[in-house]
């Protein structure tokens, strides 16, 4: 089941990648003549970004549930979800950065979304550093869960305030904006395929990592029962 999802995710994202260049409409540069190929990264960047925020939310839910139940498996799930978050947040940053370079001709822009993602990266890395600096297992899990929930709470506040601060905001708005591109069915279809694929990938990576964790846990149990 998990492998099927993984395969599906891979298939869909690859399909979306191909479709982005063959099927979806291509925007024009400001001169209105030459095609703006850089825009096609949109079909990768946005789904990754949305998936990353969703996985972050899942991780935060596991953090809170761990605090309420103190069940070790919830801590493991929170940790794995944070790992997936880190992967997707970094992918978002990289694809976003490629875009800023191509589109705005700068390597980095302190623009609300980029700033928020930069902070999120730091918070998620911070989550793992906090984990590694505590020896006692239960305490480690508790501290990580508390920090994880606070981090998730602060991310939207950071995002909104950064947007208010430089309310100029030149981040492109594709759907619902006046760019017009998102209204074409081809763009929408490509986008949806990419998004579904990305979510399938996120979910199956999470499940596979959990499977691995459970296996190594069983190994530990065997070790303990042999070692007395």
């Amino acid at each position: 089941m998990t492998y099927a999802l993984l395969a599906l995710g891979g298939l869909l994202t690859t399909a979306a990648f191909v479709m982005a260049f063959t099927y979806a409409p291509v925007a024009l540069l400001d001169d209105g003549m030459r095609p703006d190929i850089s825009f096609q990264i949109f079909y990768f960047h946005v789904p990754v970004a949305e998936a990353s925020f969703l996985v972050f939310a899942v991780a935060a839910v596991y953090c809170v549930r761990f605090l309420l139940k103190k069940d070790r498996i919830l801590d493991t799930k929170a940790r794995i979800a944070m790992e997936v978050t880190l992967l997707f947040v970094i992918l978002t940053m990289v694809t976003g950065d490629l875009w800023t370079r191509a589109r705005w001709n700068v390597w980095w822009e302190w623009e609300p979304r980029l700033t928020t993602y930069f902070l999120m990266t730091l918070l998620v890395i911070g989550y793992f550093v906090v984990r590694n600096s505590v020896d006692d297992e239960e305490r480690r899990a508790t501290y990580a869960a508390v920090f994880g929930s606070l981090a998730f709470l602060s991310a939207p506040i950071s995002f909104t305030i950064t947007r208010v601060m430089n309310n100029v905001g030149n981040h492109p708005v594709v759907f619902g904006g006046n760019a017009g591109l998102g209204t074409t069915p081809q763009a929408l279809v490509t986008f949806i395929i990419a998004q579904v694929g990305m979510l399938a990938l996120a979910y199956s990576i999470f499940q596979l990592r959990m499977r691995e964790e459970r296996a190594s846990e069983r190994l530990e149990v065997v070790k303990i029962s042999l070692g007395g």
Partner: peptide, 9 residues
Amino acid sequence: GLTRQFGLR
């Protein structure tokens, strides 16, 4: 029947 368990031990 007091049991304390967190983790595997």
